[in-house]
């Protein structure tokens, strides 16, 4: 019973990691850049929602705050690529990595200045409510987290495989030059992908902040999510989710059954093992070009 309880809450945590990892992978696939501020995007999304919904701030209805903050983060992602990253075109990867790390710092301190460095939690209509399934007690927030992740995954899958825009995003990530030749506006598409991953980060942030407290340094969670993305194979969306779930489940189990300290190391130990035995990640998607 204990085991199942830990498994269930690990699953809910894993969904948050998975969604942040999804954001990493979306941007990496579309633009070949790694957004090290993805965790801070998650944090910012959560704080914007807190700013709208909590009584201490604006105190609007939770159901208006959620779509508003998702919308705000997608605009933020779009504008960041449009206004900053696009002008770095042709620079080395290192420059872009450092830029996104710096952005993370800026967001962290900006959030601290606006909302203070004290941990807050998002006030939701379902806070503190539980459901019990034969002895296993699950918070509504946890169940909701899993359901939202599933719905988001399915709708992303449909978006990428069925819509023209989704196909164009895939095309631009598989062969940027050919996408140009087909008249696909690659630069705008890349900004849209940044917007999309901002929105996904906001969803992750809202789920995270409704399960517990969040503070401006919560963005450091992004490092764990980065490990999750690498475990899944850095170019694969289902891989990112799976990697997130693995880390989410391993953490509570190892802190319960293994000696102290193991749970902090576990995600990276798994990453190490995956990289040794399957360097491309679990769902590696590498393909060689025919000559």
């Amino acid at each position: 019973m204990d085991f199942i309880q830990l498994l269930a809450s690990g699953l809910a945590n894993g969904c948050v990691y998975g969604l942040i990892a999804l954001g990493f992978v979306l941007i990496y696939k579309a633009t070949e850049a790694v957004n090290f501020a993805q965790g801070d995007f998650m944090m910012l999304g959560a704080f914007i929602c807190v700013g709208f919904a909590n009584e201490d701030f604006l105190g609007w209805s939770f159901w208006t705050a959620v779509p508003l903050s998702i919308f705000f983060m997608s605009v933020f992602g779009y504008l960041f690529n449009w206004g900053v990253l696009r002008h770095m075109f042709g620079r080395s990867q290192t420059a872009i990595v450092i830029l996104t790390i710096a952005l993370g710092f800026i967001l962290r301190f900006a959030a601290g200045t606006i909302w203070s460095h004290e941990p807050v939690s998002l006030e939701t209509p379902y806070a503190g409510k539980d459901v019990s399934f034969g002895g296993v007690v699950l918070g509504i927030d946890e169940i909701l987290g899993v359901i939202v992740t599933i719905i988001l995954t399915i709708s992303l899958f449909i978006f990428f495989s069925k819509t023209k825009l989704g196909l164009a995003m895939q095309a631009a990530s598989q062969n940027q030059l050919a996408a140009y030749y087909m008249g696909i506006p690659v630069k705008r598409i890349q900004s849209m992908v940044w917007g999309l991953s901002g929105a996904v980060a906001a969803v992750a942030g809202i789920l995270f902040a409704s399960k517990g407290a969040i503070d401006p340094s919560a963005g450091l969670l992004g490092i764990k999510a980065f490990a999750a993305a690498a475990i899944g194979g850095f170019g694969s969306l289902p891989g990112a989710l799976l990697g997130g779930l693995i880390i989410g489940i391993v953490e509570p189990l190892s802190s319960r059954y293994a000696p102290p300290g193991v749970s902090q190391i576990a995600p990276y130990a798994i990453l190490l093992v995956v990289l040794i035995f399957r360097p491309g990640g679990i769902f590696s998607q590498t393909q060689k070009k025919k000559v």
């Binding site: 050919a178 030749y181 696909i184």
Partner: peptide, 18 residues
């Protein structure tokens, strides 16, 4: 220069993106 992971039909349809 094709889109290797997309299907043949999807590749052709992307030609009509405009």
């Amino acid at each position: 220069e094709i889109f290797p992971i997309l299907s043949v039909a999807e590749n052709i349809e992307l030609g009509a993106y405009t």
